[in-house]
Nucleic acid binder design. Structure first.
Lengths: 222, 222
DNA sequence: ATCGGCGTGTGACTTAAGTCGTATGCAGGG
DNA sequence: CCCTGCATACGACTTAAGTCACACGCCGAT
């Protein structure tokens, strides 16, 4: 059983009205997730949506070859699989995996729709969340199309450095899946950046040395 | 002055409640747009949002080189620039151009937010619109990252053939901007498809000959 | 009819990025 | 301690895709 006040932990749900949180808490149940668990599988019928109580997730697509593109990384508070529920086919549109131990609050499709229709502030908050995600997706798409891998990696490193809660499970494979390339290329470019004195690396952790220089390569087109 | 019943023309706004449409009509004003007009400029302060009464638009990004990536094509009923208004920086996140003569209904930021807070069905409808767009954006991004230009073009042609209201202003440049490549490459591949007997072309119009064959190349990874 | 602009056709060349093979290094479990 | 499994390092090779140069054809405006 979930207590309404527990939901105040969530940076998203906290902005709901008291009664909305109560209705949410009444219907949701919670579940613990261990690292690496696949919470949602693309192509399967969509039955639930989730709200992250704690932990990190990644949303991804895979092509027939097995190459992966990460669509989004989700942090506590954010919803999972809403879009699948809102699309009338009700099929999971992407795969979602836990990157850390995590806990999620689960709603059935039915309860989710109930909240949506009866608690206006709920759908309004979701709208803001979607706007944010749409912005990120746009950046991802335009990055992939209009900038080189080098520029995308430079951007990624800068954003990473600015992150408030640094996640440090970044393997080269992870980075590659994030910026839309393969491991080998990431390795090569990191070496190149290191030789140029833009970064240093010790123990799988990248440290920016020359932020301005990196910003330049992030905008380079040649 | 806009009459509430006019809004029933819009495939999106028609699903609002009578009173919501009335409130919308009371606040919106309308404007005619000629082909090629840039309605929204990326980077400028976001002051209005728009709802398409008639006509087609494209949403795009441009890199410093001038290469263009189309993010979305918008048809009657769909909103324009909502995401920019919902993001707290209130800066236009992309550029929007009219592809045909068009008419739009305009709301100020203030009125938009007013409708959002006071008419729950309004925000709920927008949520569905966003879900759809998020789905499209995801497809765009994963296509760019995980599939070849050839596969993307094949997909594009198939979708185009399935379109209900065929838009026929498709130059090779337009197609290129849509699928994330350049004119030359589109031309080359169309020729190749034609030689393989997958399509024919007469007078700037592409006709599918072998849908199954095209579907195959759409999924090819080699 | 002539002109000029736009969209297109087409080959030759360049290059960013992906692929492959093999080597090294570190870390945890038995 | 030694395996075994992951993550990384790095050079050689391949290729998809972008770039360049130039020619052609169509259409609307003068």
């Amino acid at each position: 059983m979930i207590k309404p006040d527990d939901l105040k932990q969530s940076p998203i749900l906290v902005s709901l009205m008291q009664e909305t949180r109560a209705a949410f808490a009444e219907r949701a149940f919670s579940r613990n997730i261990s690292t690496g668990t696949t919470l949602v599988v693309e192509g399967m019928p969509a039955e639930y949506c989730y709200f992250i109580a704690s932990g990190h997730f990644r949303v991804l697509h895979m092509n027939p070859e097995g190459r992966v593109q990460v669509i989004a990384r989700l942090t506590p508070g954010l919803p999972i699989n809403l879009i699948s529920l809102l699309n009338k086919e009700k099929i999971n549109l992407a795969t979602v995996e836990a990157l850390t131990p995590a806990r999620v609050l689960i709603l059935t499709t039915f309860d989710f729709e109930y909240l949506l229709t009866n608690f206006p502030d709920f759908s309004k908050v979701m709208l803001y969340v979607f706007a944010e995600r749409l912005k990120n997706m746009t950046q991802l798409a335009t990055g992939l199309s209009l900038y080189t891998v080098k520029a995308r990696l430079a951007r990624f490193l800068i954003e990473l450095a600015d992150e408030t809660s640094p996640f440090d499970g970044w393997t080269q494979d992870e980075i590659a899946a994030q910026i839309g390339t393969v491991r080998d290329v990431v390795g090569r470019l990191l070496r190149e950046f290191e030789n140029q004195g833009l970064i240093t690396r010790n123990r799988h952790r990248v440290v920016l040395l020359d932020r301005k220089g990196l910003t330049e390569t992030a905008n380079q087109i040649d």
